[in-house]
Design a binder for these strands. Sequence first.
DNA 1: TATTGTTATACTCTATAACTATA
DNA 2: TATAGTTATAGAGTATAACAATA
Lengths: 157, 157
Amino acid sequence: MSDVSAPPCTTLDDRAIDIGPLPQLVGYALRRAQLAVFQDFYATFAEFDIRPTQFSVLTVLRHNPGRRQSQIADALGIKRANFVALFDGLRTRGLAERRPAPDDRRAHALYLTEAGAALLDELAVPLARHEGRFIARLGAADMQRLLTLLHRITGDG
Amino acid sequence: MSDVSAPPCTTLDDRAIDIGPLPQLVGYALRRAQLAVFQDFYATFAEFDIRPTQFSVLTVLRHNPGRRQSQIADALGIKRANFVALFDGLRTRGLAERRPAPDDRRAHALYLTEAGAALLDELAVPLARHEGRFIARLGAADMQRLLTLLHRITGDG
DNA sequence: TATTGTTATACTCTATAACTATA
DNA sequence: TATAGTTATAGAGTATAACAATA
């Protein structure tokens, strides 16, 4: 339905902006796509107060119990100095814990708590819905192609 | 050459970390790929002191001279409050300028300066090298497939 | 001497609220 | 009343330097 009584243009130029060659730049396209997915992630996990980085730490802890802070941080591309506060946020919520490393009194071995493991189980359902929304946009086959291309960009595949 | 006198393991567990299902999550894969490309962008344009967001603003100004701040900011997904300092950084360097909007005394019309246009011309060469490094990893056909998939993720494809 | 975890600090990016001058 | 630009502010994320304890 068009509105025949719509007012005339109120500005000199209200055509859509032309962002030119930006969509053909891989960095720009990656950034916009990443923001779209993270926005969906934030909305999906807001009720659990879990952000993408926190989710990635919990996941790596589940798959690597007892590793040191620096190993976990390195695997996720996080500086060890920045990992301290990030991990403390999980620890004070009872989701993860530090234990003395048996072979090195400087180091801590990191573990999920039972509450952390239970939360990760609980997050599996909304996570699948979140991923499912993007698989629905692309189809499963194209999503797998996208993941493979992204791994080749990152340099590990 | 392997070093037969290499010391034994110094830690309890120095196998590589297993980041589990993270590489199959679209948000994680996008984030890591975006960081890899932006790292290359930073290194490529460090000598020009241009960051990805600044480059995108200059590019949109070239393609849309005379538009208002809020239009430019919206097109790039930047809040108008955050755009002020960003644009001032370009303006004080003589790359862009504000002019009074002819039809609305609240608004400013934004333009590239000649220096800004000249810089953008100069940046074309390193930009092509930057893009070329990732096209080299994927091949031109797969890069085009990646861009198309990314646009579909973002929702404008 | 080097490394682990930590603190301090700074800079960027992002988000919201509120102000001003116009409309 | 609403909008364009602006200011202030706060929260993440990220980067470097330096320190204590330990290797």
